[in-house]
Computed example of a mutant assay.
Amino acid sequence: MIQADFHRREFADGEELAHGLADWTAERLRVAIAAQGVALLIVSGGKSPARFFELLSDMELDWTRVAVTLADERRVPDDSPRSNARLAREKLLRNRAAAANFTPLADVRLPGDQELAAASARVAHLPLPADVVVLGMGDDGHTASWFPGADGLAEAMDLGARQLVAPIAAADAGEPRLTLTGRVILRARAIALEIEGEAKLATFAAALEPGPEEAMPIRAVLRRAADRLTVFSAKQT
């Protein structure tokens, strides 16, 4: 088993988890603003974050000093129901958090190479390193858009990746995607991993066992950033 020095917080269900994660995130953003004048929050898409986003959106802090971007994005229009940017705008960037400064990743109006260059330039202008990165995990052990078997996966997960943003294409990823690389995610000051349900807890337990990172990319976070990782888990969704 991986000897990872991460913190772990366990909750009865997904509702309690969402409250705990929102409080934890807001407090770290407040600390960052007090120390630096600004804070950078990186969030993920999927189904699990919706409750967390809604709670965080009404947390009391100076949202005008918070920059928000995405850990990854599908190459789909902003109004697509599969767009992470749409989810963030509808669930997070409202209430008090409407004052935050949001930087999307994808822009499908551009050709692929231009879209990647534009995304990389936008991320480079954010106040890195990130103060908080909130990640999810798939049943296959992927996180962000680091999918097992994806072309360019090793480079995308690399702490010293040449790029801040990488293109990802994998059989299980559906649409082509853009993802932040290990150069951004693994250098964050604090990382949260949200895990809900028995199936994902089983996947997480498997990820703690020895094995290649390419087979279960969440291992890259567990092995290279465990000292800054807090796992938020609940058996019930």
Score class of each variant (00 low, 15 high):
68 V>K: 07
210 P>H: 05
91 K>H: 13
188 A>G: 08
96 R>G: 10
170 A>K: 08
105 L>P: 00
108 V>K: 09
171 A>I: 12
141 G>H: 06
159 L>T: 13
115 E>D: 10
193 L>E: 06
206 A>E: 15
132 V>P: 06
98 A>L: 12
84 N>T: 05
189 R>I: 10
172 D>I: 09
180 L>P: 02
179 T>K: 00
91 K>W: 10
185 I>R: 09
112 G>V: 00
184 V>T: 07
129 P>G: 08
200 K>S: 04
186 L>K: 10
147 F>Y: 03
86 R>L: 07
173 A>E: 01
176 P>C: 01
152 G>W: 06
79 D>I: 07
130 A>M: 01
173 A>V: 04
109 R>K: 11
102 F>Q: 09
158 D>Y: 12
83 S>E: 02
105 L>V: 06
148 P>S: 14
195 I>C: 00
72 D>V: 02
210 P>G: 03
78 D>A: 15
118 A>K: 10
101 N>C: 13
190 A>F: 00
211 G>P: 11
168 I>T: 05
78 D>V: 13
129 P>Q: 11
129 P>S: 05
143 T>L: 01
151 D>T: 15
103 T>K: 01
121 A>H: 05
109 R>P: 05
171 A>M: 13
155 E>T: 10
204 F>M: 12
98 A>H: 13
102 F>R: 04
138 G>C: 03
181 T>I: 08
168 I>N: 04
93 L>V: 10
178 L>I: 01
83 S>I: 02
212 P>E: 14
189 R>C: 08
136 G>V: 00
196 E>R: 15
95 N>Q: 14
177 R>P: 07
74 R>A: 08
157 M>A: 14
88 A>I: 09
161 A>K: 06
169 A>E: 15
151 D>L: 15
110 L>K: 07
101 N>E: 14
101 N>H: 13
72 D>A: 02
104 P>N: 01
199 A>W: 06
211 G>Y: 10
135 L>Y: 07
85 A>N: 06
107 D>R: 02
165 V>N: 06
117 A>L: 07
160 G>N: 15
133 V>I: 03
168 I>C: 07
192 A>G: 11
118 A>H: 11
67 A>F: 10
195 I>E: 03
177 R>L: 02
84 N>S: 06
98 A>C: 15
82 R>P: 10
108 V>D: 04
145 S>T: 00
85 A>E: 00
201 L>M: 04
94 R>M: 12
127 P>D: 01
68 V>I: 05
122 R>I: 05
150 A>W: 12
161 A>N: 11
171 A>R: 12
133 V>K: 09
120 S>I: 06
68 V>P: 01
70 L>F: 07
78 D>K: 11
210 P>A: 01
175 E>N: 13
131 D>G: 00
159 L>K: 14
185 I>S: 11
86 R>I: 03
119 A>C: 03
100 A>F: 07
104 P>W: 08
114 Q>W: 12
179 T>M: 00
88 A>T: 01
138 G>R: 08
96 R>H: 13
190 A>M: 07
125 H>I: 07
172 D>G: 12
141 G>S: 02
208 L>E: 00
189 R>D: 10
198 E>I: 13
176 P>M: 08
180 L>A: 00
70 L>Q: 09
177 R>V: 00
152 G>H: 08
82 R>M: 13
106 A>N: 04
106 A>T: 05
77 P>K: 09
188 A>M: 02
171 A>D: 15
162 R>H: 13
164 L>R: 09
192 A>V: 04
149 G>D: 09
